[in-house]
Amino acid sequence: MSRPMADSHRRFLQTMMSNGIISASQAEALHKHCCETHGAHYVADRLDDFINVINAQLQPLFMYIRKGMSEENGLEYYALVNMTETDITRMASDYADNELELFRKTMDLIVDSESGSASSTDILNSADSLRTKKLKKKETEHVLNKFVQDKWLNEKDGEYTLSVRCVVEMEQYMRTIYPDLIKVCHVCHNIALQCQMCENPACGIKVHLPCAARYFRARSDPHCPSCNDFWPHEIPEMQRFQSQSSQNLPSSSRENTAPTTSRRSRRS
């Protein structure tokens, strides 16, 4: 029953493969570009239909293009996800064993933290206990930089968080490895790391900051969407996050929306 793919779809997929992740506004521009390049019929707000055609063909290959939201700016992204990987092998082709171990340790720290972030000091300390091959302080910093450049981590003032790409592509892995630590956002049902939490111990639901901004927008007296207890956190301003449906607005935030060099271009 699935509709066949045309060259417009193939070009879209190729671009996804070389970029790993693209923002929703980039995806929209790319959709238009691919349709126009190959003389295909283009309908502006049918991006998800267009992607579904690709996903139908990717499914037997255990891959698909998935939408995710950045925990930091609330913007939507599309990433190519591999379902066969139960480990972080997605990264295996680009990093050495000890670099991968460092990534796992960083992820441990972030998932285990309340803030959904890990300080560079903590990561550097954990690098001392690498079993594969020790990394010097300078090397560790260099590798962390590479993780940020390749869009697996975000960094702000020495605090590292998992990027939207990482959360989208490694959701399966994270759910397997941290079954008790991983909670989902009560509003959008995606993995929640950087978020607010209900303080009712019997409830304790989590809500992403952009989701909280949206959810509590019009409420002067915010209550937990699950247990109805008072919501004790400061409600983030919507303006902090560009509106969800923002189209073709270049993001000014530090989240990686720019098409930086892809994994393809990494050389030793």
Partner: peptide, 14 residues
């Protein structure tokens, strides 16, 4: 697929 100039997102890496 033919290489195309001026992709909105870089094809096959910039």
């Amino acid at each position: 697929l033919d290489p195309i100039q001026g992709e909105p997102v870089s094809m096959r890496s910039v």
